[in-house]
Structure formats: structure tokens, C-alpha cells
């Protein structure tokens, strides 16, 4: 455990530790306000190679390539960014069975003010389900370490993409 996570457990500290425990060293992201503490924490930690991409599918391509060459990676994004991904996921990590791990901060629910975000949010789980991509919504701090660790572990053990959805119940959502 990092000293930060020991001092005061946070969802982002727990996720960062889960990445480390599963040797996920490559962190790609398309910026998101809710994910900021996770992104900042990964940037600050030399264990990780962390950088932003211009599109989510670009990040999926990078992580797929890295994973096939022996470096595990994760893609961080928000809900609307996930909605740009179905073709890339179906054609690449799902078809080739490459364990690309995704972390999506959930917008569009529990007090969303933007109608577009609310609509696109409803597409996320059906897309994941239709491709057989295991996903778990993280809502509670006391379950966060278990859910994150086991989901990432299973992705690599079964060579299949997986998705962790960060609920506003856990993150506090967009203020």
C-alpha cells in the first residue's frame, strides 16, 4: 500500500494500488474532472508511464499493443468517451482477446445537468454486455479494493477486456 492509501483510503488511491498489484504500468487517459486525483496520482508515481491521448480508441490501440508486447495497461475515460469505442473494442481487444482494462467515471446519472450525458450514459452497460465485457460498478469505499483487484486479476487471467465504472456514489461525481 502506498503511504497515501494507508493514511486515508480513497477510491483513487485504492485503484492505483490495484494497478500496481496487478503490474499495470501503462496508464493512458482522455482527461476527466472526476478522474483527476487518479490521473494526478499516476503521473506523480514513477511506477507508471502515464500520458493523455486525443481519443479513447487511440488509447485502446496503444494499450492493446503494449499488452501484446508484455506491458499491462489501462485506459481511463468518462462515460461519453466510452460511447465512442464499440467498433474499436469489437475489432481489437475483444476479437483478439487482449485484456485491455478500462476505468470509466460515470456521468449522466444521479443529478446530471447535461441531457446528452444522461442519454449516452444509458448506452454504456448495454454496449459492454453485448460484447461480453465484464463490468463492475464501484459504489462503496469498503468494497473498492476487492472489486478493483479481482476485476483486473480476472481480465488478465482470462485474457478478456474488463471495465470498472466509478459511480458518483464513490467519487462524489461532478460538483
Amino acid at each position: 500500500m502506498s503511504s497515501t492509501a494507508e493514511a486515508a483510503p480513497t477510491w483513487h488511491g485504492i485503484l492505483r494500488q490495484a494497478f500496481k498489484d496487478q503490474d499495470v504500468r501503462l496508464v493512458t487517459y482522455v482527461p476527466d474532472n472526476v478522474l483527476r486525483p487518479l490521473i494526478d496520482g499516476c503521473h506523480a508515481d514513477p511506477f507508471f508511464t502515464t500520458f493523455s491521448c486525443t481519443r479513447e480508441e487511440e488509447a485502446v490501440g496503444i494499450v492493446t499493443g503494449a499488452c501484446m508486447a508484455g506491458m499491462r495497461g489501462v485506459v481511463l475515460m468518462q462515460t461519453s468517451g466510452f460511447a465512442t469505442l464499440p467498433n474499436a473494442l469489437a475489432s481489437l481487444p475483444v476479437a483478439f482477446q487482449v485484456p485491455v482494462v478500462m476505468v470509466v467515471s460515470e456521468r449522466g446519472t444521479m443529478g446530471e445537468f447535461n441531457p446528452g450525458q444522461a442519454i449516452v450514459c444509458r448506452t454504456m452497460r448495454p454496449i459492454l454486455d453485448s460484447m461480453g465485457i465484464e463490468h463492475h460498478t464501484m459504489t462503496r469505499l469498503d468494497e473498492a479494493a476487492f472489486v478493483a483487484d479481482r476485476t483486473i486479476r480476472q481480465a488478465f487471467a482470462t485474457r478478456w477486456p474488463a471495465c470498472l465504472i466509478i459511480s458518483p456514489l464513490l467519487s462524489g461525481g461532478r460538483k
Binding site: 501503462l26 508486447a69 508484455g70
Partner: peptide, 25 residues
Amino acid sequence: NFYMLGSMGLAAPIAFGVAIAQPAR
């Protein structure tokens, strides 16, 4: 050689990922 399927536009990102993972190759 890696023969991509339908993820049009992702050859360079995939190659970039391989390059990050293996700087000597």
C-alpha cells in the same frame, strides 16, 4: 507481424504501444 482487423486508424497506436513496452525493439 500483427494483422489488424476492423479497427481502422489504429495501426500507429498499436505500434506505439508495442514500442513503449519494448524500447529495444
